[in-house]
Simulated assay, not measured.
Amino acid sequence: MTVRTHSIKIHSPPVAHVAGVRGRGSTFNPHARFLALQREAEADAAADGGPPTQLTAERARSILSYNRSPDLPFDRSINPYRGCEHGCIYCYARPSHAYMDLSPGLDFETRLFYKPDAPELLRRALAHPRYRCAPIALGTNTDCWQPAERRLRLTRRVLEVLLECRHPVAIVTKSALIERDLDLLGEFARLGLVRVTVSVTTLDDALARRLEPRASRGERRLATIAALRAADIPVGVFFAPLIPALNDHELESVVEAAHAAGADQAAHVLLRLPREVQPLFEDWLATHYPARAAHVMSVLRQSRGGLANDPRFGHRMRGEGPFARLYGQRMARVRERLGMVPHGMEELRCDLFRAPANPAGEPPVQGSLF
């Protein structure tokens, strides 16, 4: 589990309703739910075009996060960043910014944290005598190849440690920046240690500009799939999130285009709206798609047992009811027609793992008896 130090605890200035801020997803900045004080926004707080992106170093005690979710095909993950500049309005990780006393709205996409010692923390974790190898997931909370990575190169350094240790890794991203690391990923693939999944939400650029303003566009993500396949790196596609009455009609076309680019696996995830994500998304809908907002939420609630969000294991990813069943049937049929399979990490090898030298550069802690 990652723990921040008090030295980087910062409070966000209030931001008024900012419908249409160029390059940002959130339309307002709700208060962090753990703050004792509430603040009011100035009417012209966003008149200059919105807040700039700020980066703050976060000193973490550990880098591996563990989970016991039966909905996930992995039990550990790494997140070098907290917050994400992509600004996807639907991001289920937004509520985590409240633990930093920051808003899950604009703060989440403008007040970012990075973990400069992530590679060293990883090396220490993998060198521990009790560590047992299993696939590590990258990109489960925020995108590891978001714009800040171009300069900070934290994710690349994490990959270098994992490759040195012959450790399997499963990746999810929506960023074309991953192509920078084709050299490392190619070595992982040669050893059977990697699978990449590219998330493609829509091929409609007008929708993408509003829905995920600073992420790579759909066609660019297809080109990334093609580049990964050309480098013999196993690659699949996530149609995620599936948003009723907004992008659900694109399910088949996205999967077909991804398959043509080289993806051999496909899956979808129904829109999730935990905690503060619900009011953020509803305000975004009312701002950008007022004519269909009620219909979107109606179908979603019919797929979530009458609620906007259902956090139960076994239900939160796919939903229930006739609409959810229809989405599942459509995905199964297009996969069958194209010869694709669902996502899985069972093929990743764990038998090649070797413990690293510890951070002080001494011999591996887990030495051989012979």
Rank of each mutant, 00 (worst) to 15 (best):
A226N: 10
D101E: 14
E120A: 11
C84N: 01
N247D: 06
P356I: 08
H315F: 10
R82F: 12
P364Q: 01
L246H: 05
S96C: 04
L122A: 05
F238S: 13
P147M: 04
M100Y: 11
R221P: 00
E149P: 01
A118N: 06
E252L: 04
P279G: 07
S175Y: 04
Q278G: 06
P116L: 09
L222V: 05
R221T: 03
L285F: 05
G23V: 14
A257K: 09
G139S: 01
V194S: 03
A189I: 14
E40Q: 14
A93Q: 04
R157I: 13
C88V: 05
P234Q: 11
R292C: 10
M345P: 00
E85A: 12
V255M: 06
P364N: 00
R337D: 12
V235N: 02
M297P: 00
A45T: 10
G236C: 07
H86L: 03
V161Y: 03
R316P: 04
R335D: 01
H268Y: 13
A45W: 12
N141E: 08
S77H: 14
H259L: 02
H259I: 09
S368F: 06
Q38R: 15
V15R: 01
V196W: 08
A19V: 14
R156V: 11
S303L: 09
A355D: 01
G314Y: 01
L207K: 07
D283S: 15
A118G: 07
A360C: 00
G83H: 10
C91W: 00
S77L: 15
R275W: 13
L182D: 01
L307R: 14
S96I: 07
S7C: 03
L72E: 10
L285V: 10
C84P: 03
D232F: 08
L300Y: 11
V296K: 03
F108T: 05
R333P: 08
K9L: 15
A36L: 10
R33T: 11
F188W: 01
S62G: 10
R209T: 15
F74H: 14
D101T: 05
V198M: 13
S96K: 02
A308V: 11
R130A: 14
R151I: 03
P30I: 01
G305E: 05
K174H: 00
C144E: 01
A355C: 08
G361E: 04
H268I: 03
T202M: 05
E58W: 15
A189V: 06
L246G: 05
A134H: 14
Y99P: 00
D44I: 01
H343D: 14
A231V: 02
Y289W: 11
D183Q: 02
F239R: 12
R325S: 11
T110Q: 08
G87V: 07
N29P: 09
G319D: 04
E219S: 05
E282I: 06
R220I: 09
